[in-house]
């Protein structure tokens, strides 16, 4: 699926450019976007180093275990394949908590640690496990309570009440997260049926 979408974006883009005479634009952005991708990745270094460092302290102090103990009943149901006292749980929960508070910077390193642990649980294979798909489904549907960036933009444009979209955003987020979990479950059971037949 990824392969198809990836090739489609390239080939359709290039064909479209050939027909509509936008080849020059395509040429221009080709390597500029590659450079941009490297800049983004390198820009992650500072965030990753800082938060992974702090996370290591939190882990050694036993804070991660405390956190996963607190929310264990809920998260156990979401990730039935992860043993409840596995370190992956602590990282998943810190990622979710950071996301809830809109700390995207902190959420990414914790999420990556969670993925590392889930990969170990999956026998170090290089395909996505059930828990990974569930985890990313929840992440892509966003968990933020207060959409700080949007509120800031609205303030910039002199909104009468910049925060009046917090309620609607929360409702939409809750629905899309719930839908993500349901859709994830549906695809999981479909995979199981395929494997059996």
């Amino acid at each position: 699926m990824v392969n198809l979408i990836w090739v489609f974006m390239f080939v359709f883009g290039i064909l479209y450019a050939a027909i509509n005479g936008t080849m020059e634009e395509v040429n221009k952005v080709l390597f500029k976007s590659a450079q941009e991708a490297v800049t983004i990745s390198l820009g992650l270094i500072s965030i990753l180093v800082f938060w992974l460092g702090l996370m290591n302290i939190a882990k050694k102090a036993g804070l991660l275990e405390k956190l996963s103990g607190l929310f264990r009943p809920v998260v156990k149901r979401l990730f039935p394949e992860i043993p409840p006292d596995h370190p992956a749980m602590g990282y998943i929960l810190s990622n979710m908590v950071a996301n809830l508070f809109g700390l995207g910077n902190a959420a990414t390193p914790m999420g990556i640690k969670a993925m590392e642990q889930m990969k170990k649980l999956n026998g170090d294979r290089d395909d996505a496990s059930r828990s990974m798909i569930t985890f990313l489904a929840i992440n892509t549907s966003s968990l933020t309570i207060i959409p700080t960036t949007v509120v800031a933009i609205r303030m910039n444009y002199d909104s009468m009440s910049p925060t009046d979209i917090v309620g609607t955003t929360l409702a939409a987020t809750a629905c899309s997260t719930f839908a993500a979990i349901m859709i994830d479950r549906y695809f999981f059971h479909r995979r199981q049926r395929k494997r059996r037949s």
């Binding site: 974006m9 883009g13 290039i14 395509v26 080709l30 590659a34």
Partner: peptide, 11 residues
């Protein structure tokens, strides 16, 4: 790069 080509071409 794929996304940018897709966008810049007008596709």
């Amino acid at each position: 790069v794929a996304i940018t080509v897709f966008r810049a071409s007008g596709a």
